[in-house]
Amino acid sequence: MNQIKEKNSGRWLKIAAVGILLLLALAGYDSLRRRAGRFFGDFFYPYLSVARAGVDRISDTTLLLYSRLELAARVEQLMAANRALAAQNVTTAEVLRENAELRRLASLPSSLQWRYLACEVILRDPVHWDRRLTVGRGRADGLQPGCAVFSVTSDGRPILVGLIGEVADHSAEVVTVLNPELRITVGLSASGAIGVLNASERRQGGVGIPVGMLPASLKYTPGESVITTGFEQGIPRGIKIGEMLSVDPVDELFSSRLQLSGELKPAAQLNSIRFLMAALPQER
């Protein structure tokens, strides 16, 4: 009888210990995530990168399933795209040279230079798949928290995907534009307004991302491009984020609102992202 009692009390003691452990994990999760999260990221990095390498290998092998004619046509297409990009590069170099000359004449400091780093997505959370992802580059490659991460469309236009969050030695977390925690300033190209992403009382749930702090004095048109402003240190200016879907209507006679909210449709195709580019600011 006593043995059964002892066994039961030991069992309850263990359950209580697990409860305390759970409470501790719950209470300290936020700081634990900052400190230990990236450690676990580095710990699992070799396994995740090996699996990703295997998938890449299979993906590359499937290229051999194309016929020679199809492959030749694709090479031709790529060569044509390369020629167009080379021509664009010449024009951009000329604009940059002119810009540097004008800055020198006006005695302005030179603009910030950027270095770009290609990253591959190695981990995605299936529950919040569009809010966070992990890339296989980290502190060792020069990534820092706050660096802009963008994808490039087939015609060479960069699209903002998010910002680097926590960084470990060989992996880093990307907080995407769909994550309500990401707040950056955005510029509307047609109206010239400046707003703040995810800073609105509108709740996320539909296709749009809320944009707040838009000046009520300006006129907005649906479909106008939303780009980065370059106000934040790690984000280059002019990267497309998406297009405005709608802005709150204002009664010009009776409304006293100074700021409006709106919704933008993100341009990044987060469900099919595999490779990303990170922008690293260089010394002036």
């Binding site: 676990f40 699992f44 981990l123 919040h128």
Partner: peptide
């Protein structure tokens, strides 16, 4: 806890 930490979930 390990799953949530590795995937970087905020909660």
């Amino acid at each position: 806890t390990v799953i949530d930490l590795v995937t970087g979930r905020s909660e």
